[in-house]
Design a protein around this nucleic acid. Structure first.
Lengths: 341, 341
DNA sequence: ATTAGCACTCAATGGGAGAGAGTGCTAACA
DNA sequence: TGTTAGCACTCTCTCCCATTGAGTGCTAAT
């Protein structure tokens, strides 16, 4: 399925034109745009060939051609050159990182924002679960009257915290011994293996402090619930309002609804992602509702587990820019996470 | 400006009809809908009067009437009866609270979600700043190698935390003495009064540990930056896709963009809010971009400072439902916050 | 004061003509 | 044999106009 040089040039130039204008591209336009030394009629013949091969299609007989999804696939596989961040964009990324790398949540949000700004598509960042982190250490720190702060630290350095109620007047030492009991039982366990059944042991070990323990367990339960699921962050969804293919209100609504909710989004992205950029074009996506959208995404590591970043846009997407950007950002934060999170 | 009974009935019935259908309401429709004992012609006369008074307007001569913004204002002030949460909704609210009151951020998010679900409008919750809380207590807790967790607690019990880097091998006691120095200098200060100028004192007090102190100060700076500004949470923005007045793509985009960003939203809500429900209809809003939208909102207290919740929707809004819902939810969480946050 | 009747207004709908863009095919050309 | 000019043809898009129908305001009768 390799194309001769001329067909390639024509296909690529139709793709570039179509991506820019969202209009079918005619034979004359192809010749003009690239100052080709052949006539429109010749191009028409080539276009007819490309259509037969399935790379182009015609909305109706008297219109120009538009790239088919296979056409885009061929382009992405064989013709595309990724366009990485330019100097200015890279500086802006560094600035974003510098200002926000203090706190993980914030940071991730800003990264998503950056992605959508640079590409002009909707972007997403999926935070990995910490299921497979190990419970390393628990601390209970007395705060104001009757309150304490419960800290859970994992082997990868992830910290979770929650406020709990304790009996008034309880000594710090007592809290410490409770914490010790927890550490003894849960220490070294993967988070997803921590079971309520271990509770009995604790109860037995510390008959007197049932209330604190119950509160603490409740809090841990809650922390785990909050962190065991992947968190999804989306940014720039409104970019799709600019795309003429979604000027239909119903379609728009369907897409925005998907992007607005966490649930569907998680299912959109394939479970297994690699650390290289992957592209899913239109019908290649499994979810029915996004068969008119394309995904460009890649995996990164944080706290030892796999997260995902990417952009989502119309099939008529600037794949070269999207792929380059996702790649650059992925590499950048992956490197960063190695050091910090 | 009081209306006689008949005019009131007519105005109210036009409002209800128009809110439901988004279509101009004709004289016949008014008579039929409410089984009035008067003829359409009589209603037409009354409608002409109401139009003269500015409560109704006519899109064009051969159409029915729609309520003007003053009409809605009159309705809200003189005719409306708030429709509070029904039993089922109230139960659902309690359930939401029960499942999420463990963590403030989550909790607030779910409240916003609840509001938008029940009203079918976009909802917002603005978290108060903690500017006026007092710095009460700082702790530095050693974590894994070379890392520590910095905790800042305010007099109202608000906890902020951040991870910092410390020199390897530093003793817990040493950290404690650093923390003590902080507490000594900042203790009792309002958060918005904490100045970098105090830094010098610290430096002098603890010449040896400059690195830890710098890191800690950096972290505190960051925490404050994060919490001094009001945080805005928005939910259910896509509800406006259902409103026929926003089927115009440009308008839609303008509104969604406003709701999508934090900045504009903060300015939409008047600075001073009371604890009772306030309603701003269309042009009563100061911001140009939302002069076609209405706000229904109220203030609540958390950590001793004022937050805001409310909904935003088209001028053609079910004010009775929106006002009742906002009131119910406000009262509920206000009560809750008194106990917890 | 209320109502029936009627002429009038104006948005919305749908059909048809004309313009314009682009094609496929044919025949001529290098 | 590949390339090109020319031309008839197709199909969408836009504009125009006539028709329809809902709803009004006014007038005259009750």
């Amino acid at each position: 399925m390799t194309l001769d040089e001329r067909k390639r040039i024509i296909l690529e130039s139709i793709i570039k034109d179509y991506v820019e204008t969202a209009e079918p591209v005619g034979s004359r336009a192809v010749v003009k745009k690239h100052g080709l030394k052949i006539s429109a009629a010749t191009v028409r013949n080539e276009m007819a060939d490309l259509e037969e091969m399935g790379y182009l299609e015609q909305p109706h007989t008297s219109a120009g051609r538009i790239p088919s999804q296979s056409g885009f696939r061929y382009y992405v596989d064989c013709l595309m050159e990724k366009e990485n961040l330019d100097e200015q964009e890279f500086e802006s990324l560094q600035k974003v990182v510098k200002e926000n790398f203090q706190e993980r949540d914030n940071f991730i949000e800003e990264i998503a924002h950056f992605l959508s700004q640079v590409t002009n598509y909707a972007s997403f960042v999926i935070l990995p679960t910490v299921k497979f982190n190990e419970f390393k250490n628990l601390q209970i720190i007395p705060m104001e009257q009757g309150k304490a702060l419960l800290l859970v630290v994992t082997d990868m350095g992830m910290i979770m915290h929650r406020k709990i109620t304790i009996p008034e007047g309880m000594e710090a030492e007592e809290l410490q011994s409770i914490a010790q009991a927890f550490n003894h039982i849960f220490g070294g366990k993967k988070l997803d293996k921590m079971r309520r059944s271990d509770l009995q042991m604790l109860r037995d070990a510390l008959k007197q402090r049932r209330q604190v323990i119950d509160n603490a367990l409740q809090a841990i339960d809650n922390l785990l619930k909050n962190n065991q699921n992947e968190k999804v962050l989306v940014s720039g969804t409104l970019n799709i309002l600019n795309e003429p293919e979604f000027k239909n209100l119903d379609k728009l609504k369907r897409i925005l609804t998907i992007l607005d909710e966490d649930g569907p989004l998680k299912n959109i992205i394939p479970e297994a992602v690699s650390e290289t950029v992957d592209i899913r074009i239109g019908r290649e996506n499994e979810l029915e509702d996004i068969k008119e959208m394309s995904l460009v995404f890649a995996g990164y590591k944080s706290f030892g587990e796999m997260g995902k970043i990417g952009v989502i846009g119309p099939v008529r997407m600037e794949y070269w820019k999207a792929a380059g950007t996702v790649e650059s950002v992925r590499d950048f934060i992956d490197e960063l996470f190695k050091k910090r999170f």
